[in-house]
Design a binder for these strands. Structure first.
Lengths: 108, 108
DNA sequence: TAGTGGTACTCGGTACTACGAGGTAGTGGG
DNA sequence: CCCACTACCTCGTAGTACCGAGTACCACTA
């Protein structure tokens, strides 16, 4: 697939929120998950940037826990604000994708 | 609807291409069309920057024609490169939206 | 014991895009 | 004459994903 970079703007953060909402997890695993899901070119640096932003904006709670196979992991969980933001994200996505599909179908 | 600015990045240009592909038209009318279609907060300045970019990148051909109700209009039509780019845009959109929907459905 | 590969996070800088605010101009009505 | 509507352009800003480099911990092997 071509470069999706620009199209991912504004949606990738929501995807990360959704993944965290599914289960408490950490950056490295989130990157792997995204790659599996078809976001093949998303790299770890991007994910960590998003995670720090989410933390700074008070949408997640982070907890550092030791790992048996490497350095400690920083686990993230959604808080109430994060769940609200996730809801807003999906509402925006629904809205946008319906508009785009309308346009594609001939836009009446 | 909340602010869609970030989510529009990478898709708005494709929407403009699609509109031009439907019929030869001009900036002011494209802005109105987008607003009607639900992209309510898109302003003319944004559309003009996109149109100039499309022209610079050789995806459209522009023709200035006089108007009877105001200043001359700059009409845009897709060329071959523009039609190819439009095809790539829809392919990317299909890809992205299917991935996002997969994630939303529980992401297996 | 030194090296390699996989795991895990952070930071500084870059490129691209949409937006905001302002300016220029033509037409016609009160 | 002033104002509204039409129509286009421009400069600066903010936000986001990406890139590159750095740091560090662990396990395995030569």
């Amino acid at each position: 697939m071509d470069d999706l970079t620009e199209m991912l703007k504004g949606t990738l953060e929501g995807c990360v929120l959704e993944i965290i909402g599914g289960e408490e997890t950490y950056g490295y695993a989130i990157t792997r998950r995204l790659n599996e899901l078809g976001f093949a070119d998303v790299i770890d640096g991007t994910v960590y940037t998003i995670l720090l932003r989410l933390e700074r904006n008070g949408l997640v709670q982070a907890t550092k826990r030791p790992s048996e196979v490497g350095p400690p992991r920083k686990f993230y969980a959604l808080n109430d604000a994060g769940r609200e933001e996730l809801g807003r994200f999906w509402a925006k996505w629904e809205y946008l994708s319906s508009r785009i599909d309308t346009l594609k179908e001939g836009g009446r």
